[in-house]
Computed example of a mutant assay.
Amino acid sequence: MDAVVRILRSHGFPIDPDETGFDSDQVIHTRGVNNGDIFVFPSGSLVAWSLPEDVVSDLATKTLLPAAINPHMDQMELEDLEYTEDPKRESSNIKGDVITLGTKSSVQREEHTSPRVDTTLAKIAFSSGLARSTKLAVLETMLGKYVESTRTIPTLLSRGTKLPFNRRFMLQKTGELLELRAQLNHYSELTDSLPDLFWDSRHELGLEGYYDQVGRALDVGVRIKALNEKMDYAQEIASILRQTMSEKHSIHLEWIIIILIAVEVGFELRREFKERRARLAKKKDEAS
C-alpha cells in the first residue's frame, strides 16, 4: 500500500482528499477525472466511482501494477454497479445493482465533518463490500481452474486406471489448494463480519450496515460457503492423489529392495559356485 501511495502521488493524485483519517494500510482514497472517487484496498481491489471504464482499466492494469504482489492479470474480475445520489435522504442503500447515496446533511453530524465526508465514508463502506466480492470472484475463478486441472482423476480412479501423474504434480496441486484456502480464510476482508477500518467509525453513519448490504446483494456469504465446500471436495481429491502417489512410491521402493536382494543372492550364488568349482578342481588334482 505504501507503493500505491508513492505511485499515485507521482502521477499527481491527491491522497485522502476529504481527510477521512483512514490508515493507508486499510484503504487509500484519491480522486481522478470528473472528481471521480478511487479507493484501493490491501486485497488488490480497486473501486472507482464516476470514472470512465478505460481510465479505471489503465489505472488498475498499468499505473498501479508495479505495487501489486503476485498479480493475476489473467484472472482479473470486474463488478459493475450503478449508483445515484439522493439529496433528500440521509441514509444510503443498495437494491439489486443500484446503490443510492443519501447526501442530505444529518442533524447528528459532528461539527468538524461535512456532508461530503459522510458521503465519502458511505462510499468507502460500499466499496469495501465490492472489493470483497471481486476478491472472492478471483478465488472462484482460480478454484475453477484448479478443479478443471484435476477433473480426470475421479474418472481414472473409477476405471481402475493407473494415474499418469508424478510426485511433482501432486506437490504442486497440494500447494495450490493450500494457497487458495489461505487466501479465502486467512484474509479478514473476506471472512470477517466487519473490516477493521470501520471499528472506530461513528455509529450513526451506519457504515457496517452498508457493508452488509453489499454482501447480501452480491451473495457473498453464500459464495464463501460454496467455495469452502468446493475446496473440501478438492481436498479429498488431493488426499487421494497423495495416498496414491505414496502407495506408488512405496511399491517402487519395495521393488528396489527386491532387486537389491536378488542381486545380492546372485552374487552369493556366484561366489558359492566359484568356491565349489575350486574345491572340485583341487580334489581332482589331488586324485591325479
Rank of each mutant, 00 (worst) to 15 (best):
K135W: 14
K162H: 07
G209I: 03
T155M: 15
W255T: 13
T120A: 06
W255R: 13
D118N: 02
E148M: 13
R223M: 07
E236H: 11
A217Q: 06
I237W: 05
T134R: 09
H186M: 12
T155Y: 15
K135M: 14
G215N: 00
G215Q: 02
M142S: 10
V138I: 13
G209V: 03
F165M: 01
E204L: 02
D118R: 00
T141D: 14
E189I: 08
W199Y: 10
Q243G: 04
G175H: 08
L241T: 00
D192C: 06
F169E: 01
R151M: 08
L156C: 04
D196T: 05
L178C: 11
V147P: 08
K248A: 10
D196Y: 10
S246I: 08
Y211M: 02
I224E: 08
L121R: 09
D200G: 06
V220Q: 05
G175K: 09
K248M: 15
D212K: 07
T152S: 11
M142A: 14
W255I: 09
L130K: 01
E148Y: 09
M170N: 10
I256F: 13
L241V: 01
I224G: 04
I224T: 02
V220Y: 04
I153N: 00
M245L: 15
L156D: 00
M231S: 05
V222E: 13
I258C: 14
W255M: 15
Q172I: 04
H186Y: 05
Y187D: 08
L139H: 05
S193D: 10
Q213W: 04
D200E: 14
R168T: 03
D196S: 13
Y187A: 09
L130Y: 05
L253I: 11
E204I: 07
D118M: 07
P195C: 05
K135C: 09
A122S: 08
E229C: 02
S188A: 10
A226S: 10
N185K: 03
E229G: 11
L136F: 14
D232H: 12
L227Y: 04
L253E: 12
L218T: 01
K162T: 10
P154M: 07
L130S: 03
A234I: 05
N228R: 15
F198R: 01
A182P: 11
L197S: 00
E176Q: 13
L177Q: 05
L171E: 09
M245D: 10
E204F: 02
L241I: 00
I256G: 13
V214W: 01
W255P: 09
Y187L: 12
W199Q: 14
D212W: 06
F198P: 02
E204M: 03
S193C: 03
T119N: 07
L197R: 00
Q172N: 10
G144Q: 07
